[in-house]
Nucleic acid binder design. Structure first.
Lengths: 402, 402
DNA sequence: TGGATTTAATTTAGACCCTAAAATAAATAT
DNA sequence: ATATTTATTTTAGGGTCTAAATTAAATCCA
């Protein structure tokens, strides 16, 4: 006589199956059972439902004849066309739009150069609506429905309310972007910090599995961070990501884009490195407050080639980064710190000074077993993360209602 | 035909009922249902089992005739004699032992002055075994069994392995205390950081409910911290608590007890305040590297009474604390920071400089809605927290096996 | 004083979910 | 061809929960 099942186990198990399929690709029922600690009888029952809803398909048992005896496995996979999501990455002077299918694969990607700092809030919303509408009609040609949109931005974000509090890409603050877009497109819109998107992707990679508490530091124009606690992004009181870049290296130190002084970002970000370098080195012309990738590569080259001024600048950046890391280690003691972002191009030139600074700042008992490693930067990672976060958020509603 | 129920809901609901009873005292079955979101039929079934196991008792419906119509509620409560735990607090020059009953109430408390810094590891274990054995025989006179022992210490602790990594109260490091005591007394022994104990108590207080992400900063001889994330203490990679005290204020700054320089603790702890003060002020004699409560009160008095030297010292401490807070807010963005510990006696003299430092360090977007408040310090709070943590850990085994 | 009313606790009946074991399916090995 | 092996489905049964019905124990009120 129970009306609503207060028992959530079926729901949880179904979500686990979907998540496994999205992470691992086609998997047989037996293996889904083993991977998720449920009996294969239950997997049969769950997959029958999903099949009936059109969310998964059975793979024809053609090619994969892996080995030996016994009845061959029937692999099941997510039906790519069952749904799609759109991820929009907003960064300085660039807008990227990506369509992901239900299995999490990237289906379409486009970049647009935009003078983001010149936009008014109205401009931005109009631009987003226009570009999203375009890719949406494109996506809906091959997918059953659009189940979510993700806005991935650098900066401080109140993800629960969908308000962009502050971004270095924009000259205004406190824009309630997500609700506006949600109303326009009639689907959930998530506003996410870019570092959280990256971290969500990295956390699923086998190389970084087994590190439940993971800090991902993003070097680039600014410096961002995401903290994963037991694999899920930690959002603080205002729903924003952790602002490693604005933790302090030196009270009263170098000026930072945030308006304060002595932030780690004021030493180790692209704009800080370039600002220091321009005073002593010959460097490509251009907007030196917002150095381009080419400008930054020129500077990094100099350091790699042994230019002492450039090396000194990167070493000082490394030292600031090291003191920031020391605080991160003292307060958090993560299992692993991953350094990535476009700024990793200069990581080699900063690493030694960074390590020295950490050793100078912290006794070994407090460094503990934490490892700090860098991770090559790929441009599309942010959007892949946004897609995966958005799909995951859509799974539960997709199962219950439509 | 299922052998072990892979469904944990009964177990979870039973634990929830026990936890509610421990937090709230006697509660009626209906209310247990409402508080935990389960039907009262289920509560009836759970409480029948617990009654049969002797873990709870029904309160005689004598006094409490609160109001009006209807069948009166039958309150049930935890049976205090069903079990007991012992919490041992180890701090500089003092050992406190407390016995808690199954309902979480303090049954017995004793303090011993001990020159902790002079102890060898063997001395310490022998002393702990002796004192614990005494209170154990006392406790077992009135309780059915001892289900756990908690060692609450200041310092860095690897709680999963039960190893005390480093404590200001001791002159040695890396002592595997918990396993040794567990073998001697034949029951689980938890090793906990004192700040985590405090935080666990404060988090259950109604005044601080509704702040899922809570940082508790403990001022005293050293400076400790506990971070509660969604109400549970966050333990980093090595199982240690967050070491706020050794986060950095000023690279190359004042020497700290940890051996490094510029830690927040090197400015705002008791020993740091007293060290600075002794150079310019007349203060009570004694071991100034480990100032007593009386010595610290004398110093605090001076600042409160307007002595400019003392005020300057507390202001500098407040500034260091403020920069530490700024990093905490940037990295964590907790909902609430509680400042407590014996060192809160001087909080009033530090607060203004602390707030100024935070405003100097962080833009308001990053301070967000976080509130920082102090909380009066009570000597027994640590052990109350240890008792509650230990009882909670014992609940699950108590239900399954014996 | 005695029924009506109210509220608490227990009992009952049924739905859902899961699992182990049995049955079935579909291969390979000999 | 038959035995063996492995995957999937079916079957049977246990556990847990809830809504509804029932029972219990008060107060209200005439």
């Amino acid at each position: 006589m129970a009306s609503q099942p207060h028992d959530t186990s079926r729901h949880d198990n179904t979500l686990a199956v979907i998540r496994t399929l999205r992470e691992q690709g086609p998997v047989a029922r037996v293996d889904l059972g083993i991977l998720n600690g449920i009996s294969s009888a239950t997997v049969t029952s769950i997959s029958a439902e999903l099949l009936q809803q059109g969310l998964i398909t059975e793979l024809p048992p053609d090619m994969p004849r892996p080995s030996g005896r016994g009845r061959p496995k029937t692999l099941i996979q997510l039906a790519p066309e069952a749904a799609c999501v759109i991820c929009v990455k907003l960064s300085i002077n660039e807008l990227q739009l990506v369509v992901g299918d239900y299995s999490g694969q990237m289906q379409h990607s486009e970049h647009h150069g935009v003078a983001t700092l010149a936009l008014t809030p109205e401009d931005l919303v109009a631009l987003l609506e226009e570009k999203i509408a375009e890719v949406r009609s494109l996506a809906l040609a091959s997918h059953r429905r659009l189940v979510g949109i993700c806005l991935a931005v650098q900066g401080v974000v109140a993800s629960h309310s969908g308000t962009l509090i502050w971004s270095p890409a924009l000259s205004f603050r406190n824009a309630p972007l997500a609700p506006q877009l949600a109303e326009r497109f009639g689907c959930p819109v998530l506003l996410e910090n870019d570092a959280n998107c990256i971290a969500s992707v990295l956390a699923t990679q086998p190389a970084y599995a087994g590190y439940p508490n993971l800090a991902v530091v993003m070097l680039g124009y600014g410096i961002g961070m995401s903290l994963l606690i037991d694999g899920v992004p930690f959002l603080g009181a205002n729903g924003s990501a952790a602002e490693f870049g604005h933790s302090k290296y030196l009270p009263g130190g170098a000026p930072c884009a945030c308006g304060k002084r002595g932030c780690v970002e004021a030493y180790a970000s692209d704009y800080a490195l370039y600002r220091e370098a321009r005073e002593v080195l010959e460097l490509p012309a251009g907007d030196s407050a917002h150095p381009s990738e080419a400008q930054m590569q020129a500077l990094t080259q100099l350091a790699m080639q042994g230019n002492p001024d450039a090396q000194r600048i990167f070493a000082e950046a490394g030292r600031a980064l090291g003191y920031g890391m020391a605080n991160l280690l003292a307060l958090f003691n993560p299992d692993l710190v991953l350094v990535t972002g476009s700024g990793v191009r200069g990581y080699a030139a900063m690493q030694e000074a960074m390590q020295d600074a950490i050793d100078e700042a912290l006794v070994s008992e407090l460094i503990g077993p934490t490892r700090i490693v860098s991770c090559p930067w790929e441009r599309d990672m942010t959007c892949l993360g946004g897609i995966s976060i958005t799909l995951q958020a859509s799974d539960s509603p997709l199962l219950t209602g439509s």
